[in-house]
Design a protein around this nucleic acid. Structure first.
Lengths: 185, 185
DNA sequence: CCTACCGATCGGTAGG
DNA sequence: CCTACCGATCGGTAGG
C-alpha cells in the first residue's frame, strides 16, 4: 500500500502499471496477485484509508466541546497535518478516487460527504452561537475551508519554512479574520 | 481539442485511449494522426489553452488601475467564471498537466507561477496601500485565493443555484471579511 | 514467488 | 498534389 500510494500519487492510477508496482517491490507483476485481489482493490484500500484518516480527525476535532472557532481551527490544523504526514496517500485520496468503479466510489463519496457535513456543522454552530457573522453562507464557507485544506498537497513540501500545523493555523486565521484591515466599516 | 478536454477530464489522460478519442469523433484512431502529432501534443494543447485563458484573465483583472480589493475581486470572479465556462478544459489544466514530459511541463509550470505572481502582487499592493491588514501573509493569502478558485471544478454544476460570478463574489467576500463577527476585538 | 501464457488493447505507423 | 480517411498491423503492455 505504501508503494501504491507513492506510485499512484506520482503517475496517477491509470499511469501506474502492475509492472511498476512489481518493480518497486522487487516482484514479477503476476506475483502481486498473491497479495491483492486487483489493481482497483489496491486503489480502494489506499483511498479508503485516506478517507478514514481525515474523517477520524474531523470527528475528533468536531466533538471537543470547545467554541466553534476553536473546533474549526483544530479541524483545519488537523487536516493540513494529516495531509502533510500522509502526503502521497492523501494525494491519491483526493485525485484518484474518481477512477473507482461505481460501488466503491459511492462508498468513498459517502465519506467525503460526511466530512463536508462535519465542517458545515461547525460553521453553522458558530453562526448560531454568535461567534461568526450571521450573513455567512455556510455551504460556501465550508467549501472555502475544504478548498484551502485540499489544495495544499499541490504545493506543500516537508522542508518548507512553515510546519503543517503552522500552515493550518495561518489558513484558519485568514479564513476567520479576512484580508481586510480591521476598523473602518 | 474539445473531445480531448472532455475525455481527459472524465477519464484522465492515461485513462483515455486514442480509441476513445476516435470513437468520440467518429473516426478510426489511426485517422487522428492526420490531425495531431501525438497524444501528448494533444494534452499539451488543451492544458496550454487553459493556462492562457486564466493568465489572460488575470492580467486583465490586475491591470485595471482599481484598488487592490477590486482587482482581487475581479480576478476571483474571472477565475470562477473562466473555470465554469470551460469546466472540462480547466479540469484538465489543473489535474493532468503533471503528466506532460519535462520540457512541456516546465512551460506550463512557468505560466502557473506567473499566475500566482499576479495574485500575490495584487495582495501585496493591497497591503502596501493600507487596504489589507499589514499582518497578512501574502504567500499564504495568495494560496488561499488559488485554492478557492481551483477547487471549485470539483463541485460546480452549471445548473446550481448560484452563477459562477456569484460564487466568485461570495468567495471574495469571505476571503476579504472572514467568518468572524465584526465588532468586538 | 516464478514463467508462461490468455484475450484485449496500448500509442503509433504502414501502404494505398 | 491535397485532406481525410481505410483495414491492417507494428512492437509492447494491460489486467488477470
Amino acid at each position: 500500500m505504501d508503494a501504491a500510494a507513492r506510485l499512484f500519487s506520482e503517475r496517477g492510477y491509470h499511469g501506474t502499471s502492475m509492472q511498476h508496482l512489481g518493480q518497486a517491490l522487487g516482484l514479477q507483476r503476476g506475483s502481486l496477485y498473491a497479495h491483492i485481489g486487483s489493481k482497483e482493490e489496491l486503489l480502494f484500500d489506499v483511498v479508503n484509508q485516506g478517507a478514514e484518516r481525515f474523517l477520524g480527525m474531523a470527528r475528533h476535532a468536531a466533538s471537543s466541546g470547545e467554541p466553534a472557532a476553536a473546533r474549526l481551527r483544530a479541524l483545519l490544523v488537523g487536516h493540513v497535518s494529516t495531509a502533510a504526514q500522509h502526503l502521497e496517500a492523501s494525494t491519491v485520496f483526493l485525485n484518484e478516487w474518481r477512477y473507482l468503479s461505481p460501488v466503491p466510489r459511492a462508498q468513498i463519496q459517502a465519506k467525503r460527504d460526511l466530512y463536508e457535513t462535519v465542517v458545515r456543522r461547525i460553521i453553522s454552530d458558530g453562526v448560531a452561537a454568535g461567534e461568526f457573522d450571521p450573513g455567512v453562507n455556510v455551504a460556501m464557507a465550508g467549501r472555502l475551508v475544504l478548498s484551502a485544506g485540499n489544495w495544499i498537497y499541490t504545493w506543500y513540501h516537508p522542508d518548507g519554512a512553515l510546519s503543517a500545523s503552522a500552515i493550518g493555523a495561518e489558513l484558519f486565521d485568514l479564513i476567520l479574520n479576512g484580508l481586510a484591515k480591521e476598523g473602518p466599516a
